[in-house]
Amino acid sequence: MRVVMAMVAAALLAGCASSAMEAARSQAPTKAFSSSKAADVVAQCIQFGWQDEEVFGVDASGYLEPGKQGGFTVYTREAESFADIRAQGGSTAVSYYAKHNDSVALRRMAALATCL
């Protein structure tokens, strides 16, 4: 029973994060980047960087999932910040979105930038 409840809670949270991300994608990204590295390498690096408890403390979270239109999405709890990573020609395009313009969002963007 506990397993079922945990799965339902996870599905509900994913749905909330997904709708928040779709709303953010209707706007321009907070910042756009490009990289010569492969999309999967960039996505894994961002996920790893966002999970660094030394930098983000209790806010350290980074979830990686396949993007709806290819590529990958790395996001935090409640989609406070997320990045869409897609192969684009011979390079990788990264669109970073942040719900708030605060120090945590800036640290996440800086961690993302180290992966390019």
Score class of each variant (00 low, 15 high):
2 R>V: 10
4 V>F: 08
4 V>H: 06
6 A>D: 13
9 A>K: 14
10 A>H: 03
10 A>Y: 06
11 A>T: 09
11 A>F: 11
11 A>C: 07
12 L>A: 07
12 L>K: 09
13 L>A: 09
14 A>D: 08
15 G>W: 15
15 G>H: 13
15 G>P: 05
16 C>I: 02
16 C>G: 03
18 S>V: 07
19 S>L: 13
21 M>V: 06
23 A>M: 13
24 A>W: 10
24 A>V: 08
25 R>S: 02
26 S>A: 08
28 A>F: 05
29 P>A: 05
29 P>T: 03
30 T>H: 07
30 T>I: 00
31 K>Q: 13
32 A>P: 00
32 A>T: 15
33 F>H: 09
33 F>K: 04
34 S>D: 12
34 S>T: 14
34 S>Y: 10
34 S>C: 05
34 S>N: 10
35 S>C: 08
36 S>E: 11
36 S>Y: 03
37 K>T: 05
37 K>G: 04
37 K>P: 00
39 A>G: 07
40 D>M: 09
40 D>I: 06
40 D>E: 14
40 D>F: 04
41 V>M: 09
43 A>T: 09
43 A>M: 11
44 Q>K: 13
46 I>H: 04
46 I>V: 15
46 I>C: 07
46 I>W: 01
47 Q>D: 07
47 Q>C: 07
48 F>L: 13
48 F>Q: 14
48 F>C: 05
49 G>W: 00
50 W>N: 05
54 E>N: 12
56 F>D: 03
57 G>S: 15
57 G>E: 15
58 V>Y: 03
59 D>M: 14
59 D>I: 00
59 D>C: 08
60 A>H: 09
62 G>F: 02
62 G>E: 02
63 Y>S: 12
63 Y>F: 11
67 G>E: 01
67 G>I: 01
68 K>V: 08
69 Q>E: 14
71 G>W: 01
72 F>K: 12
72 F>A: 13
72 F>S: 15
73 T>C: 04
73 T>H: 01
73 T>V: 15
73 T>A: 05
76 T>L: 02
76 T>K: 07
77 R>I: 02
78 E>S: 08
79 A>N: 05
81 S>I: 00
81 S>C: 14
82 F>S: 01
83 A>H: 02
83 A>S: 12
84 D>C: 06
84 D>K: 06
84 D>L: 12
84 D>P: 00
87 A>F: 01
87 A>V: 00
87 A>I: 00
87 A>T: 09
88 Q>N: 08
89 G>M: 07
90 G>W: 00
90 G>F: 00
91 S>Y: 02
91 S>E: 13
91 S>K: 14
92 T>H: 05
92 T>Y: 03
93 A>M: 11
97 Y>H: 08
97 Y>M: 02
98 A>I: 00
98 A>N: 08
99 K>E: 13
100 H>F: 14
100 H>I: 11
100 H>L: 15
101 N>D: 15
102 D>Y: 09
102 D>C: 10
103 S>E: 15
104 V>N: 05
106 L>G: 03
106 L>V: 14
107 R>Y: 14
107 R>S: 13
109 M>G: 08
109 M>D: 10
109 M>Y: 06
112 L>G: 05
112 L>W: 03
113 A>Y: 04
114 T>G: 06
114 T>F: 08
115 C>F: 13
